[in-house]
Structures are given as structure tokens and as C-alpha cells.
Write a protein that binds this DNA or RNA. Structure first.
Length: 200
DNA sequence: CGTTGGATTGGCT
DNA sequence: GCCAATCCAACGC
């Protein structure tokens, strides 16, 4: 199935976050193995948003958020976790969508290996349930920070999948956002209402 | 240059 | 429900 074009990401971040539901995030390993999952939960981090990493201007860490749409922004947090975003809007406008959960589709055996602790794999519904969990399952780390997902030979990209109708979509405040009451309460998290693969 | 706390998770009470 | 794990960029002095 074809990939979403760069123009898809070059739009309002909230619209992109909402329309990413049902799309398929694909990671191609060095040996050609495809790992993929249906996007079931996203969050928008917009220009001027006090919860966004770029709120106080450009820094070494958030620089990818200022790059062209379709670039990956992968940040390291809590000393051990990676989180994956796709950059949105025009280059120079800092914005991105955090992908928070996937319904595993391809390469589930490999994902179980990546997510195993002491030789024990979590239940399939937990493999990609959470932003750091999906990064571990798909082997997404700092090597993909600032990576153009629309490059011809890209090993990380998003396919069209099947858009989710409004009737099966729900919104809520974002998870783990503290500080500014506006940023904490605005409903910029979207998820597939009846999916067991959604976090929290 | 020292301090702080984070777009989280897993394990334990 | 609570808290430690474990790095490091950002910010304040």
C-alpha cells in the first residue's frame, strides 16, 4: 500500500493527528523484515503550545520539530525511553504529532522479542500500547531523530491504511502533560474509541 | 558548572 | 496507587 505524501503532514497539526488514526507505521529492519502497526492513538503538539518541547524556541534537542513535514522527531526521556513523533506544518513552524499506540500488524514475533523482559513477552495488546513501548517494539531510537520518512529508501514511514471515521474516534486531554492549565485540559489526544490497543 | 525534572514504564505495596 | 530507574538538555547562577 502507498505511503502518505509529504503534503499530508504539511497541514494543521490537530488535523494531521486526527487523520493519522488508522494509518500504518512501518519499520523495515536491516534484514528487510517489516514491522508494522495500525495507529490507534495520537497527540498534537502545536506552535505556541506550552506543553511542546519547542515552546521556548529552537534548541539542539527540539531542532527536528522545525524541519520539513514528514521528518521523524525521536526524543529520549526518563533516562531510558524513546518517543516517536512525525513533524507537521511548514518547515520553520515547530509542530509534531506524538504517536502513542499501535495495533500490531506485521512482525509480531519480532516485536515480542524486542519487548521481552527476562525472556517473558507481554500480551500482544501491550506490545505497542504506549509511546515508549512502541518505540522499543519497532526498534525506533535516536538513529531516526531528524530522519526524513519520505526518503525513497526510508526504513521508517507511514502508509495510507484505512482512515477511521469520526463515529469511531474519540478525543481527550493529553496524557502526562503538566503545568499550564490550558495545555493540560485542551483535547488534543485522539484515539480509536473501541480499540483495546489504546494506552492508559 | 550544578541542579532539575521530564510528551514513561514496570515492579512492588 | 506509588515510586525508582537512569540520562541529559535546559536553565539558573
Amino acid at each position: 500500500m502507498g505511503r502518505l505524501p509529504r503534503s499530508f503532514f504539511a497541514r494543521d497539526t490537530r488535523l494531521v493527528a486526527r487523520e493519522l488514526l488508522g494509518r500504518v507505521l512501518v519499520r523495515v529492519l536491516d534484514d528487510g523484515t517489516r514491522l508494522s502497526g495500525r495507529i490507534v492513538e495520537t497527540e498534537a503538539y502545536c506552535p505556541g503550545d506550552t506543553a511542546a518541547h519547542a515552546y521556548r524556541g529552537q534548541t539542539a534537542r527540539n531542532a527536528p520539530m522545525f524541519m520539513q513535514p514528514g521528518v521523524a522527531y525521536v526524543y529520549f526521556t526518563y533516562g531510558m525511553h524513546y518517543c516517536f513523533n512525525v513533524v507537521t506544518e511548514q518547515a520553520g513552524t515547530p509542530a509534531a504529532v506524538l504517536v502513542r499506540a499501535l495495533e500490531p500488524l506485521e512482525g509480531i514475533d519480532i516485536m515480542r522479542q524486542h519487548r521481552s523482559r527476562n525472556g517473558v513477552a507481554p500480551a500482544d495488546r501491550d506490545l505497542c500500547r504506549g509511546p515508549a513501548r512502541l518505540c522499543r517494539a519497532l526498534c525506533i531510537d535516536r538513529a531516526f531523530n531528524g530522519y526524513d520518512m519520505l526518503h525513497v529508501d526510508s526504513r521508517l514511514f507511514i502508509e495510507r491504511g484505512h482512515p477511521v471515521p469520526d463515529s469511531r474516534t474519540a478525543a481527550s486531554p493529553r496524557i502526562g502533560v503538566s503545568g499550564d492549565p490550558i495545555a493540560r485540559t485542551v483535547e488534543w489526544r485522539w484515539f480509536v474509541a473501541d480499540s483495546p490497543f489504546v494506552s492508559r
